[in-house]
Design a binder for these strands. Structure first.
Ligand SMILES: [Mn+2]
Ligand SMILES: [Mn+2]
Ligand SMILES: [Zn+2]
Ligand SMILES: [Zn+2]
Lengths: 149, 149
DNA sequence: TTTAAAATGAAAATGATTTTCATTTTCGAG
DNA sequence: CTCGAAAATGAAAATCATTTTCATTTTAAA
């Protein structure tokens, strides 16, 4: 069980960007680093604030533009929550899902759900051909659990 | 297996609104009817257009205000999708989840997932105390399945 | 019937994101 | 290296969804 999806690294991301014809810049690298090193999903302004520590002249527009590129390449994805859907996370790889702390926002990735029997049952009852699924778990991480006790 | 969550009716909704101190108006009833009679999740503008067939003078602001009330009372909820999260549906009751046609958008409700063993395994491995979960299935409804064959 | 609270629509305000544009930076060709 | 075309950047303006304001109308309860 990993905190980051199957050892995604900064150089992976920078390579993927370069392969796709994007250029390597200090801003892009700083933004990628912020996202990859966070334990929780961050929204564009949070990423902006964190990256400006490294790149003082950075503009918020550049954060938005970089997020578009990363999303287009499937390197990040949005975390959907009741409170909103603008925070992003390194994308899951293969068959992983998110596990989100409802107190501090920390995210872990997990795999190993076996929903196939449920899907068969639903297909039998509804005639839907199931293509994919979203599974997201919310709970208290060990630290927040300890803090609240 | 239901199309609507456990027989939600228009009069249920209107009663709930009245009990909560809201007044009964033609606009609110029209908006509620549009949402309850749709087979798919609608966004505010779609609701606006459909309800204006019945109430020509209706304003989009009233749709937004009515959606706020319905959401506050837990009668509707947003459908989260890659393309956006502004469509709404009658809220699930108890332990139901959505099944969404990725072609026509039709939604059905289902229950009967048994994730307890998965949750125990995850708690053992991560120390997270799992509080709740989101499960959403995407696939082709029988009609779209037939149409694509 | 009266009246206070709630609802309404139009217009203005807000907040998030995208586009435009002039300038700078990157990177491969020479 | 040195150029030059393409990509990236920041500031400001534009866009889009949603909320707020405000003057007026409607509802429901006395
Ligand atoms: Mn899964
Ligand atoms: Mn469930
Ligand atoms: Zn936590
Ligand atoms: Zn369909």
């Amino acid at each position: 069980m990993n905190t980051l999806p199957l050892e995604t690294t900064l150089t992976d991301w920078l390579n993927r960007l370069q392969e796709s014809g994007y250029r390597s810049t200090d801003r892009c690298e700083a933004i990628a680093r912020v996202i990859l090193s966070s334990q929780r999903a961050l929204d564009p302004v949070e990423i902006f604030d964190a990256a400006r520590a490294e790149i003082p002249g950075l503009g918020l527009v550049t954060v938005y533009r970089t997020l578009q590129k990363l999303e287009e390449l499937g390197l990040i994805q949005r975390l959907h929550q009741e409170e909103g859907c603008r925070r992003v996370l390194p994308a899951v790889k293969g068959h992983q899902h998110f596990l989100v702390c409802s107190s501090c926002g920390m995210v872990r990735y997990f795999e190993g759900d076996n929903l196939a029997p449920l899907f068969e049952e639903i297909t039998r009852q509804t005639g839907f051909a199931i293509q994919n699924h979203w599974l997201q778990l919310f709970g208290l991480c060990p630290a927040c659990r300890a803090a609240s006790a």
